[in-house]
Design a protein around this nucleic acid. Structure first.
Lengths: 216, 216
DNA sequence: CACCTACCGTACACTCTGTTCGACATAGTG
DNA sequence: CACTATGTCGAACAGAGTGTACGGTAGGTG
């Protein structure tokens, strides 16, 4: 038999054992203050206490590892977040959507803070790695579509400035908001979260969702 | 004489020759689509056609190179931008500051687009490199201070929602705005710049500078 | 017991980094 | 013109990290 680079583990169960060990190892390293870029595969191996060959049997490289980590995180974070969005966000057409958005952002910030080290690693790596960027981008694009749809609804009902450009506004809100949240968490204390959520919500609300121009 | 690691060039003139060669080499490589992280020192040497030892006589490493490149760019970009800000921004207390901000952003976006590859490299590298991050951060913090001061002025004159938190708003505006601009440029055509500037300006204006709450 | 699955450990080829140092080219000075 | 200082070149090297290859081994299963 020709030497086929060694097969990857196939049995559902055993797969999880190694991979979660790697995930927690990376989390530990990230939480200890290292940037993902600086963390070598060697350090991950040492921390997870597995061998080099085992690692490469499971992950193609460090990028795929991070992307997979992100995906596994999203299944109980992003999905959870979109669940919130579905319930709360719908109140967006109600008169005080501002409070809805504030609550939504407060939850979002809390979750973001909880997993901050991993999310920061993803955003950091997405800047130069195509695989991670694809993953990162697709997540935000989903939000963008949602925001845009809501803005268009409000435009249709004349609930905001008729000159508002829903597509561009949605981009500003989502991509700028993401960065604003990340920066807030990395520089401010948790005690500021409520104020931050309220302030960001107000900017979104009065700046786009419910924009009242001088003339109106 | 003991071998002191080889002195760095001292004469003003000759210094510039090598360094600008390196700068243009990096710019060429960035413009050709490569991410700064992926660009090895070797490639820079080849592109600039200088030797390894010469490079390290001028720059400590790739990070310092990028930070220096950024600084040299700022002397005729950031400074220029803050000059605009000084003249136009002051109109912020006038009734239609919205138009002032729109113009300011339009110029900012244009400049950002012109030097996009380098600015993207800086933001990309700042995410994991301390030296570049210091540089990147200090630039944005200057803007943040400016925005915050303006917001506080408007608060004092009761020109916006009395409940607005100037500190947090300034952070959202500057850090979120930076990301929004970067994302816009990397995904949208130049023809969209005017609409984008208007939309971002509107969000800033109605969301913070001139926020009108329901009750007022 | 024989077999298979999945991990271990070592070894290896390769790439990149940052340093060192002798050689050389050039320009200014006495 | 000879001397000297300056700055670049080129080659060599140690060290770190990456991804691959493959033989060996423990444990569960039929």
């Amino acid at each position: 038999m020709p030497s086929i680079t060694r097969t990857a583990p196939d049995s559902e169960g055993n797969r999880r054992v190694v991979e979660t060990a790697v995930y927690t190892a990376v989390r530990t390293l990230l939480d200890s203050g290292a940037k993902y870029t600086e963390i070598s595969v060697q350090k991950i191996l040492a921390e997870a206490d597995i061998s080099r060959s085992t690692f490469y049997a499971h992950f193609r490289d460090k990028s795929e590892l991070l992307a997979r980590m992100g995906r596994s995180l999203n299944q109980r974070f992003f999905d959870e977040a979109t669940a919130d969005a579905a319930t709360i966000w719908d109140a967006v057409e109600s008169p005080d959507g501002l409070q809805s958005i504030t609550e939504l952002l407060a939850k979002g910030v809390a979750r973001h803070r909880e997993h901050f080290s991993v999310l920061a690693a993803i955003s950091e790596t997405a800047a130069y790695d195509a695989a991670v960027n694809d993953f990162y981008t697709s997540g935000l694009e989903a939000f963008e579509a949602r925001v845009r749809a809501d803005l268009e609804k409000r435009l249709g009902s004349a609930l905001t400035d008729s000159k508002l450009n829903a597509r561009i506004s949605a981009q500003v809100i989502v991509w700028g908001g993401e960065q604003a949240i990340a920066h807030h968490i990395s520089t401010e204390d948790e005690s500021q979260d409520a104020d931050f959520a309220a302030e960001l919500a107000a900017i979104w609300w009065y700046g786009a969702y419910n924009r009242r121009t001088e003339s109106s």
